[in-house]
Amino acid sequence: MDEMTQLDRLRSEIPTPELSGAAERRLLAEIATSSQPRPARRQRRRVNLGLGLASGLAAAVTMGVVITNGDSGDPGQTPTVQPYSMAAVTLQRAADNTSKQEELHPKPGQFLVFESQTMDPVDSNNENGHSRFLSRSKRTVWLPVDGSSLDGVLFMEVLPPKPYPGWPLPPEAKQEVGTRGPDRLADFDQRAEYLRTDYAYLSSLPTDTAGMRKHLYLELEPGARADYEAWDRVGSMLAEGYLPAAQRAALFRAAATIPGVETVKKSEDAAGREGVAVAMVSTEAGERQEYIFDLKTYQYLGQRTVVVDADKAEAPVGSVLTATALLKVSVADSAPVVNGG
């Protein structure tokens, strides 16, 4: 028996897996969010949420915090992380505050317009090899109030990229800079009904804490992964979604009941606005997913992910890999006509 036969037997007990429908759906959902430029890496938490969220949840870089010197592994600035009860207080304040904010009342046929700034990691994998960078953009999304997200429109201004911590900035990163669109937001939408984030659907959600919590955990097996997934769903509703005040307050109260939520006293959104964040760590990804609120008004500002485990996240602890800032939400009677029909 030669060495190739021996090698062929090594680990041969590992079976060819059955295809899981979930894996295929995950791919299709990722494909749906694949409009350019493309956030690539490990957006697992986004995947199930599907369309339109890719760039929405992802966010912009915060100047003071991002680590560009990947060699040091120095977090630069270590935020103070508070235990869970403080997070509950923060979310409670956010909930209480919803009634004080001016509320939009979009009507059927109209569009909600989300203006945001984002930063996402991009993996570039081509004949020149493998490279990574942080793609930044300002984006405006028009989402029909009562229609399919397929009728959504995206206009994007790609901003100068940043290096991915520890990686050189590849030449192709700069080629993307410029404006594009208006384009269709997505080619198709594979999201389950209960993951929809259009206004008509969000308006139909429960306005009590228990009901909203049940919604967040729909179809999830109990466990830490479910908690993180529920947390993720909160983020997807906030990123490029607009909830009526009653649902928004219920969402914050329900979020406060998710085990493992903590507070980050000092955070910063993609546009550099400082705030307090509620956050959850994904031990699988080695990242902390933060939802950031204004310190005074407790209005939602944006989101970011911060590395807490350098090995898993493949970046130094403390680096910011994704960030968003929701700059403005407004109502429009129509959306721009997209390129190429």
């Binding site: 791919l27 990722e30 494909i31 890496r41």
Partner: peptide, 8 residues
């Protein structure tokens, strides 16, 4: 998952 997404 990343392989097929990159391939796409």
């Amino acid at each position: 998952a990343d392989t097929f997404l990159a391939a796409f």
